[in-house]
Amino acid sequence: MSRKASGIPLRSWCQDPEDLAMEQAENLCRHPRAFHHIALMPDCHPGYGMPIGGVAAFRNAIIPNAVGVDIGCGMGAAMSDFTGQPERKTLVKITETITSCIPAGFNRHKQDQKWEGFDSFLENLSGKPGWLGKDTLSIARQSLGTLGGGNHFIEIQKDGEDRIWVMLHSGSRNLGKTIAEYHHRKALAENRKDGIVLPSEDLAFFDTDSARGMAYIRDMHFALNFAKENRRRMMDIVKKILGDTLGCSFLQEINIHHNYAAEENHFGCRVWVHRKGATSAQKGEKGIIPGSMGSPSYIVEGLGNPESFCSCSHGAGRVMGRNEACRKLDAAAVAASMKGIVHGGFPTMKKGNLRGKQDFGEAPGAYKDIDTVMAAQADLVKILVKLQPLAVVKG
């Protein structure tokens, strides 16, 4: 679907996008630095400032909220050489071992985790960033190799040849959020000072060649590296657990971001492409598009479609928020949608307006149909592998 908003055009692969998502997309179209057109992926739904499942390019501008608060959130997948259907008791053992080895939710390691990325970041600082509080790096060091909460997960899956795969979804934890919120406040103050009129103050930006713009880009890359290492460490743990349990080894691995900005060439110009809940799909590039719990996931290959800025969806996309899902979804229907899949159940919510109700915020019914999403982006990616879930560990 193409439409002309006020400003640059809007190109959408999303069927029936929500009104708020369209309002946010049209704000992007009117942004003073927006380039060529705005693209909405088929999993698009409202975000903060910019729709999740949105792709936008900007000239000499970087927008913290167009990257998002979980900088570097992304996917990992690994294919094993084990074929066959593990027994249910084996899958239960695997999920229990994963849960005992990888902290999830608000939990983190009790000791600092060593990583050279911390040292190199600190060594290259010319001055202490304002977001770097007394406990920030201590929390980050203890959070490295942890799953987090929300829609983050670890799944055991099988492909059409009954080969076992591992897939996980996680990001930069509190580190990315701290960096994003700090820089958004600075960008907003700077834009107000300069008298820049924005379609939404949520889309405050820096010039990429300014001191503050370069500081954000530096900090964003630190969070991206942290997120990639976070996924790598968890994947190593899960691969060892499966190796010990199933006697398997692993043949290939993918580790990608879907919340980031990168300088790229598009339509003859060098621009900063922001992918917020969207995955790079350059021609021949491998990617991961997960479904919801209980639904298939896909390993894909990009087709390099220029109209999407060589991008595709990052997942199925929500049809309702977490609180709405907890109010509306029926326990029996949720259980039926997870039939045959080993999972840890749905915990009781402990805060918010839904105290005492079951947490169905990540149930399959809260998400779009993944196969409909895949069909909508047949011109963006080619499906390589379809994966069915066997067991899931939720954050």
Rank of each mutant, 00 (worst) to 15 (best):
K386I: 05
V197T: 12
N65G: 09
F121C: 07
R59V: 07
K382W: 00
A180M: 03
E264K: 08
V271K: 01
L20N: 10
I370A: 03
L251V: 14
I370V: 06
E26D: 08
C29N: 07
K357T: 12
G127N: 14
E181F: 12
L354E: 15
D112H: 12
R231D: 06
G315D: 05
Q377F: 02
E18A: 12
R173M: 03
L132V: 13
H343G: 10
L91E: 10
I102W: 00
S172C: 03
L147V: 03
M349C: 06
R141E: 13
G365C: 02
N60E: 15
D236E: 14
G127T: 14
G160N: 09
V319E: 07
T245V: 09
S100K: 05
A5R: 02
D219P: 14
I383M: 01
M41W: 00
I52G: 11
E362M: 10
A56M: 04
I102N: 00
F35Q: 01
R163W: 10
H31K: 05
R192F: 02
G105E: 00
A335W: 00
L125W: 09
V342A: 02
Y182R: 05
P129K: 09
A391I: 02
L10G: 02
K177S: 13
D219G: 13
S143K: 07
K239G: 03
R88E: 15
R88G: 06
F106W: 04
G84W: 14
R318V: 03
H343L: 05
G247Q: 06
M235D: 03
G268H: 00
D135W: 11
I52R: 09
Q15M: 08
K328A: 09
G53D: 01
A57C: 07
N191K: 02
H45T: 08
A375S: 12
G148I: 02
A336N: 02
G365P: 04
H274E: 10
A278V: 04
L354G: 07
Y260E: 08
Q358A: 15
T99E: 12
N230L: 03
